[in-house]
Amino acid sequence: MQERLSFYKKRESAVHRLNPLSKLTLALGIVFVSFLSPYYWTPHLLILFAVIPLSLLGKVLREYINAMLRLILPTAGFLFIMQALFQPLEGVELFRFGFLHPTQESVLFAFANATRIVVMVSSFTIFLLTTHPNELMTDLTRRGLPGQFAYVIISTLQIIPQMQAKAQTIIAAQRSRGLDTESTFFKRAGSLIPLVGPLVFGSLVEVEERAIAIEARGFTSTRVKTSLNSIPDTNKDKLIRWSLIVIIIVTLASRIWLS
């Protein structure tokens, strides 16, 4: 299994050892609480006391910070600025610049929203960093998720890196046969055209071949399937999942009654 086909980082940690469903529940739980909680500071506290400790515990802090700086913060920062400027709520006006007149309320509102986005993306980043996609799918299908559904998810996760690798080999083959891909911009753009056909066509052929291959191994068989890899599901896992469900319900209840 080529690891560059997913985000997964193979480490030895308590988070890695958790059952994939527990980790999925954890990721979803954090997102639910940050969006549903009636308290303003909940998302911020979640980052400090849930997201960062989890990334430490899972030994993926460095990868997480990397993703944070390169993807999460720029996106959230952009959302914050757009919302703060363009969604003026009634309240204390901070300044006026042309048609822009952000208020204290709009800034606070935008800040909370941006933080929620940070929490959501962060919690799934940590989930993907510590969970192998195959393990997740094996576990979910064992619990009754239809195999077709798992197949769609897995192949979607892998299609981009696979297409990239395929494009590289086709380009090498075409250049070896005199296709000029490296001179002017127009030649470059023009040389994309002979690439598109084989890339799409080749990928379709591959899909068909893969379908035949998995069918030959009884993919649509209705019998109960066994799995080569056993994925542990301990009492600790069950405890974590039930606690999370209780937390989510409590949050939901407080949302309904407190606001």
Partner: peptide
């Protein structure tokens, strides 16, 4: 020389 140029002198069967 680019690969495309060299292709006029060398044929490579993968």
């Amino acid at each position: 020389y680019s690969v495309a140029k060299l292709a006029s002198r060398i044929g490579y069967v993968f």
